[in-house]
Design a protein around this nucleic acid. Structure first.
Lengths: 230, 230
DNA sequence: GCTAAAATTACCTCCGACGTAATTTTCCCC
DNA sequence: GGGGAAAATTACGTCGGAGGTAATTTTAGC
């Protein structure tokens, strides 16, 4: 998950001749090497984390493995956690984007249910699918577990904003936030369930089969409350 | 919130003659001084946290203020956060206890709604009522915010266990966990709402009045899903 | 090429977390 | 009420992550 926000040390270009729009692909040599360095560090970090655990791996080890200075590591990744959890932005924005981009006439509830079921069918990492070692790395590290909780929280917050916009709720209305907590909560419980089954040694197709049924039950539980919410 | 679990360094008694049951009030001089030292540290820590912020306060400052060694501080409070968030156990166990101890014939949903409304009426700190400085201390500290998220998570987990026991759900059933996420989510959103209004400068009675209405709306939203769940 | 900006680097401090051994305080039993 | 055991407190040390600074190297644009 995540991290599309941070592109590394110093994203701005020279101020004298601003010929480049900030959202261009950035095809210069400097940007290329920046991406390479970032990927190099991330790869070595991930490998070490999976091999010997997140907490047991030090920044110095990562820097040595990637053959860069320790400071370069912390320049690209201000926090150690950012090297382990990738695609954070995608994860956080996912539910909100599902609501914002839903078919006309479709309720947020229906859109989110459909999105989760197809994510399960596709064994999408954003839904919780990952290798057992990766999940073990997270659950065995208090730091990473706390970070993941924070991501679930941000995701719910973004969903609340999308729901408020979709339903035209007034500023102080608590309903979008409550609805986001309910919908986000179901997604989170199912996410955790996928991780739990992965840790239990089940293979992804089997997990997808189990989750399909459990997801239907969980969303059915919530349906009487939110099916008509829009 | 919390911290009833950790009574300080070394709770066990002499092994030669175990004449005392471990759950006795512990009225000896040693236990008294232990409680006093613990309270002394906690008081100075809380004062410093509120004065200059959580992150800006160091363990050395706290130790100096309490006139004890730095190691004594970390003996009583393994993590810095534990000095700031009190009554953790009470907070975590609250919802589960409400379900376990509900009136016969009352649904978990009704019991939890009733409990929250009376907590609001009583301006209970466990529901989110606290001084603005205390709440500011939390929201301005990433460490404390993450810790509070973790407490909400533990609370939901305990609630899921209580719901599974109350409804006699089978071991692998996802329903209690989903229901706990929904009920815990509503409680959490309302908790955050109380904090938000407190930060906005509203007085507690005014907050209680606002929350009463919002809580009814939030629980009403959830009612069609869970009113009959038991 | 030359110049300015950005990236990388080698040090640095600070603080929380943790461990260990020595010292003092308290307790229990004789 | 004194002696020995246990526990609490203490001083001291290490380690790792976070963060800052100035110097050096690399790249981009003229």
């Amino acid at each position: 998950m995540g991290m599309s926000t941070d592109t590394g040390p110093g994203t701005s270009r020279g101020s004298a001749s601003g010929t480049r729009r900030p959202d261009e692909p950035a095809t210069g040599l400097r940007e290329t090497k920046k991406r390479e360095t970032r990927q190099l560090i991330s790869d070595h970090a991930t490998r070490l984390f999976l091999q010997q655990g997140f907490e047991a791996t030090t920044l110095a080890e990562i820097a040595d493995a990637a053959r860069v200075a320790k400071k370069t590591v912390t320049n690209y990744f201000p926090r150690k956690e950012d090297m382990a959890l990738d695609h954070q932005d995608e994860f956080v924005a996912g539910l909100a984007r599902t609501v914002s981009g839903r078919e006309p006439g479709e309720s947020p509830f229906a859109a989110l249910r459909r999105a989760f079921l197809s994510a399960v069918a596709a064994q999408d990492p954003v839904a919780g699918f990952a290798g057992p070692e990766f999940i073990r790395m997270i659950v065995e590290s208090p730091t990473l577990s706390a970070c993941l909780r924070g991501l679930h929280d941000q995701r719910e917050e973004a969903l609340a904003a999308a729901l408020a916009e979709a339903t035209g709720a007034s500023a102080g209305d608590i309903t979008p936030r409550a609805a986001a907590a309910l919908l986000g909560g179901v997604h989170r419980v199912l996410f955790q369930r996928i991780q739990e089954l992965t840790l239990a040694g089940r293979a992804n197709p089997e997990i997808a089969a189990v989750l399909e049924g459990e997801a239907v039950r969980a969303f059915d539980l919530l349906a009487p409350a939110l099916a008509d919410y829009s």
